[in-house]
Amino acid sequence: MENPATAGRSVARNSIILGIFAMVTVGLIAVTQQSTAERIAEEIRRVQLSALTEILPDEQHDNDMLNDTFVVDDRELLNLLRPSEAYRGRQDGEVVAVILPVIAPDGYSGRISLLVGIRANGELAGVRVLNHRETPGLGDKVELSKSRWVLSFDGKSLTMPMPEDWGVRKDGGAFDQFTGATITPRAVVQAVYRALQYFDENRGSLLELPNQEPANG
């Protein structure tokens, strides 16, 4: 029979080993999570910068839009789930455009996240889709990489086309739908129009707001 003292030392030694193993494992998990979080954040930043530059090319602004931000918190028109960052484009210090985060809540497969750029005169600078779960080959044509459809918003405004024409052609509107897919483009068109309404209602604060000050609709 094993000596009680020896058995006690063995249990203690095993406990220490297990404790060290647990600490090392936790440490490795923490490092992995931190590394993964940093990579995800960097990828999000890369996608955002790409979208911002596509909406408002470098020659149309002279500021760092990723660092010229403010917070919008609007659930009625922008359909945001939480306060979110929006961006300004400036030329010689003057705000020439704002780029708003917008959610189309009624896509075929759920929410569609957009960035909607609006010039100071109320015209659309551009629209880009950041995230969606729409059907590949059908609804995913909202992506510029899959179709030029999203470019049809460029230059449009609240009154061009007229409000009654802000819809897809199947609904009597001015915008094309996709063959075999109407719900997705309908959702995006309506979301972009609501973003224009939000801009129109908050134009003064959006164009004159100092950095980081909330703009609530």
Results as ranks from 00 to 15, higher is better:
residue 10 S to M: 12
residue 102 V to Y: 08
residue 50 S to D: 15
residue 35 S to P: 03
residue 142 V to N: 08
residue 110 G to F: 09
residue 198 Y to M: 06
residue 199 F to E: 02
residue 36 T to Q: 14
residue 168 V to R: 10
residue 203 R to F: 02
residue 36 T to S: 09
residue 35 S to I: 00
residue 50 S to F: 05
residue 118 I to E: 04
residue 19 G to L: 13
residue 95 V to G: 01
residue 11 V to W: 12
residue 54 E to W: 01
residue 26 V to R: 01
residue 31 V to C: 01
residue 113 S to E: 15
residue 77 L to Q: 10
residue 16 I to A: 11
residue 66 L to Y: 13
residue 82 R to N: 11
residue 5 A to K: 14
residue 189 V to F: 13
residue 104 A to C: 11
residue 104 A to Q: 10
residue 191 A to N: 12
residue 137 G to P: 10
residue 217 G to Y: 03
residue 63 N to S: 04
residue 139 G to L: 05
residue 130 L to M: 15
residue 11 V to P: 02
residue 71 V to P: 07
residue 194 R to H: 12
residue 65 M to N: 02
residue 62 D to Q: 02
residue 133 R to N: 12
residue 194 R to T: 01
residue 134 E to S: 09
residue 49 L to S: 10
residue 109 S to R: 11
residue 101 P to D: 07
residue 90 R to E: 00
residue 164 E to N: 13
residue 131 N to W: 04
residue 49 L to Y: 05
residue 210 P to F: 06
residue 113 S to W: 13
residue 94 E to V: 03
residue 173 G to Q: 10
residue 20 I to C: 13
residue 172 G to P: 12
residue 190 Q to C: 01
residue 130 L to G: 07
residue 130 L to H: 08
residue 57 P to H: 06
residue 154 D to T: 06
residue 213 E to H: 06
residue 193 Y to W: 11
residue 155 G to C: 02
residue 150 V to Q: 03
residue 162 M to F: 05
residue 92 D to I: 00
residue 72 V to D: 09
residue 28 L to S: 07
residue 130 L to N: 07
residue 139 G to Y: 06
residue 23 M to K: 00
residue 41 A to E: 14
residue 192 V to N: 06
residue 12 A to K: 12
residue 105 P to Y: 13
residue 125 A to V: 01
residue 126 G to M: 08
residue 20 I to A: 14
residue 213 E to A: 03
residue 22 A to K: 01
residue 83 P to V: 11
residue 144 L to Y: 14
residue 60 Q to K: 09
residue 56 L to I: 14
residue 116 V to M: 05
residue 171 D to M: 08
residue 190 Q to P: 00
residue 74 D to P: 05
residue 181 A to Y: 08
residue 13 R to T: 11
residue 131 N to A: 13
residue 172 G to Y: 11
residue 182 T to D: 11
residue 147 S to N: 15
residue 80 L to H: 09
residue 76 E to M: 06
residue 209 L to A: 12
residue 158 L to T: 00
residue 124 L to W: 02
residue 67 N to P: 03
residue 39 R to E: 09
residue 95 V to C: 02
residue 16 I to W: 13
